[in-house]
Amino acid sequence: MSTVLEITDLRVEYPSRDLRQGPKLAVNGLNLSVSSGEVFGFLGPNGAGKTTTMNVLLGFVNATAGSASIFGVDVRQPIARQRIGYLPELTYYYKFLNTEELLRFYARIFHIPRREREQRIGAVLKLVELEGARKRLIKTYSKGMQQRVGLAQALINNPDLLILDEPTSGLDPLGRMKVREIIQRLKEEGKTVFFASHELGEVETVCDRVAILHEGSLRIEGRVSDLLNQFHCNLEHVFLKVVGYQLKS
C-alpha cells in the first residue's frame, strides 16, 4: 500500500499576543503516515493540535518546522490538493448560490470537463440525498442538509483522500448515521479517509487505525484492534488513559 499522507517532524508555533511570552506551541514534532485505502482516526482532546495539523495539510497554516506531503507533493503546493476532498467542522457556503451552482463552481476548480461535470454533480447529490433541493439557495437549508452539501462538495472531484474535520458534530442521530454510511461506502470503494472526531464509538466502528494527540505531541498510534487488545478496554477508555485522565472506577 502506498503512502498517501506523510507528516515528518511537524512543528507549528503561533505568535503569542502577549509580548512578554514566547510563541505558543501547537504541534510538536509530529510524525504520521497514512496509507492508501485506510480510514484513519485523528483523535485528541480540544486544543491537542488536531485542527492545526489539518490546517497545515490543507495549506491554511504554515509549519514552523518539518514537512507534510500528500501523494508525495509538498502541501504548500496547491496541486497537492487536486486529489483530496475536505469537509470542515462547520460548513458555511455562499449564501447567494444554490447547491447546483456551488458544486458547479467547485467542479470548475477541479478542471472537471463540462459534460462530466453535470454527471458528477448528479451523482454526488444522489449520494447525499439532496437531488430534490439542488435548485434551492443553501441559506434555506437545515443544518443537516448543509452538512450534506459539505460532503457533496468534498466528493465532487471523486477524491482519493478525504479529510474530514468532525464530520458528524451537531448532527442528529439520523444525520450521523447517514454520514457514517457514506464514509463506510467510501471505504468500500477503497478511498483513504483521514478524519478527526470526538465520537469515539463512531471512530471505533469505522476506523482502521487511529492516532491520539495530546498537547501537540503524538501519544499513541496504531490499529484500533491492536489498541483495544493492548489496553483491554474500549477506545474511549484507551483515549482517557492516554491523555492522563484517571477513571474513578
Binding site: 490538493r81 487536486q82 460548513t91 449564501k95 479529510i163
Partner: peptide
C-alpha cells in the same frame, strides 16, 4: 463566513 476554507482546500493558490 468560513467559505475560504473549502475553497482553499481545493487546488487554488
Amino acid at each position: 463566513s468560513r467559505t475560504i476554507f473549502p475553497l482553499l482546500a481545493k487546488p487554488v493558490g
